[in-house]
Amino acid sequence: MEKVKNLVTLVNTKMKDAPQPPPLAFTLEDVDIGNGASSVVLVETKAPPPMSQASSNHRLARETYIRAAVAGNSWSCGENAGLHVDEWRERFNAMHTADSPATKRQGFSRARRKLQSEGVILVEDDIYIWHDPEVVDAINLQRNLRFANEEGPQR
């Protein structure tokens, strides 16, 4: 369990014979309980763990996912937007600062596994779906701007 400001995140780090459940996130909300007294309740939210707590590989994985989705053709808008692993891996390796291809490969694998175990991304048939509304919004906004610039000014 982790608390950062008013966000409380609960992550199951070990499972024996079942898939690891996604993390749970809650915000702390003040409530009036009468007679001038107040308390705090937990309200479930879909907020991801803070990026400031993430490793550099995690941040690089997020940034390269966004860039690959904006530049690529496999991104589809909507609820189940996803990106093929090859597009993501290529962008990750290009931006990773290590000299060794093995180090880059290991960094990508570790970041991808960690994000998957935390429930931040889901995978199906090599298509990775990032479950963070901020990431999806950033991709869709940048793609819309890219397509508007490619079409030129409207008459």
Results as ranks from 00 to 15, higher is better:
94 A>N: 15
42 L>Q: 11
128 Y>A: 04
58 H>Y: 10
36 G>M: 06
115 L>R: 11
45 T>S: 09
105 R>P: 01
71 A>T: 10
75 W>T: 01
51 M>S: 11
65 Y>Q: 08
96 H>Q: 13
101 P>E: 14
121 I>S: 01
75 W>M: 03
22 P>W: 02
148 A>C: 01
135 V>A: 03
30 D>K: 15
59 R>M: 10
133 P>W: 00
104 K>E: 03
3 K>C: 07
103 T>C: 09
6 N>R: 15
11 V>Q: 10
11 V>S: 08
29 E>K: 14
150 E>Y: 01
16 K>F: 03
146 R>K: 15
100 S>P: 09
32 D>A: 08
101 P>H: 11
138 A>I: 02
5 K>A: 13
17 D>H: 10
98 A>C: 14
110 R>D: 08
88 W>E: 05
48 P>H: 04
92 F>H: 05
63 E>W: 08
13 T>Y: 07
72 G>E: 07
50 P>M: 05
78 G>P: 04
30 D>R: 15
60 L>N: 12
3 K>S: 04
74 S>K: 10
114 K>C: 03
131 H>M: 05
32 D>Q: 06
81 A>F: 01
57 N>S: 13
6 N>G: 02
20 Q>A: 05
113 R>H: 11
85 V>H: 11
93 N>H: 15
109 S>G: 15
64 T>D: 05
37 A>E: 11
6 N>F: 03
11 V>K: 03
49 P>A: 07
53 Q>H: 06
82 G>K: 12
66 I>L: 08
105 R>D: 15
43 V>L: 11
95 M>V: 09
5 K>G: 09
32 D>T: 07
10 L>S: 02
150 E>M: 13
128 Y>Q: 05
124 E>Q: 12
60 L>F: 09
14 K>C: 01
121 I>E: 02
136 V>C: 02
41 V>Y: 04
74 S>Y: 04
143 R>M: 00
53 Q>V: 00
124 E>V: 03
42 L>V: 03
35 N>C: 06
12 N>F: 01
58 H>E: 10
96 H>K: 12
153 P>N: 05
143 R>T: 02
28 L>N: 06
71 A>P: 06
8 V>T: 10
106 Q>D: 13
125 D>L: 10
9 T>C: 11
10 L>R: 01
46 K>T: 09
135 V>R: 05
139 I>C: 06
153 P>I: 03
